[in-house]
């Protein structure tokens, strides 16, 4: 099975993934409508992209009261926009923080793997986002942990106290 893998140490924070994602998802270049989110992990020196892991449970899918979320041929949990009523339940059922509401359409939006050719991976200039055969994983955990000694402003905290 193909999956999106992230290599956070290669991410430069250029936001091309967010831009191409919002364009692929909603036809506009508007990063706040992107369903991949790049965030600084320590001050403004390390960034990492983050999106839906297409989890086995499908918390969004099983919570939806009107079965508006289904599994696509590409293996993604996808929102059928015409079925979504905009109740937001999926956004709190998802424990990964990767279900959103489109503030224009008032419908839920999430990563649909662009039907099997994710725009974010294509747009990434440094191969920090790769679409390939792999088991799904926690790509950012170790990286975020290794950055734990940096405080929020990006300065190294004194180790000696």
């Amino acid at each position: 099975m193909k999956a999106l893998q992230f290599f956070p140490e290669k991410c430069t924070g250029c936001m091309r993934c967010e831009i191409s994602c919002s364009y692929a998802q909603s036809g506009v270049i508007q990063p706040n409508r992107s369903v991949i989110k790049v965030a600084p992990l320590e001050g403004h020196t390390s960034y990492a992209p983050y999106t839906c892991v297409q989890c086995d449970e499908g918390w969004c899918m099983t919570a939806c009261p009107v079965d508006a979320i289904v599994i696509s041929p590409a293996g993604a949990k996808i929102v059928m926009e015409d079925q979504c009523v905009g109740c937001k339940l999926c956004t709190i059922a998802c424990p990964y923080g990767t279900m959103f509401m489109d503030t224009t359409s008032k419908k839920a939006i999430k990563c649909d793997l662009c039907g099997g050719a994710p725009a974010c991976a294509e747009a990434c200039p440094t191969e920090a986002i790769v679409w390939h055969e792999t088991e799904q994983g926690d790509w950012l955990g170790d990286f975020a942990q290794s950055r734990a000694q940096y405080n929020f402003t990006g300065l190294v905290q004194s180790q000696t106290g």
Partner: peptide
């Protein structure tokens, strides 16, 4: 987001199914 990622919440959730 940092506490969430650094504490490997993703790893701990991925095996969970009802």
């Amino acid at each position: 987001k940092r506490p969430y990622l650094a504490n490997r919440v993703v790893s701990s959730l991925m095996p969970q199914t009802t």
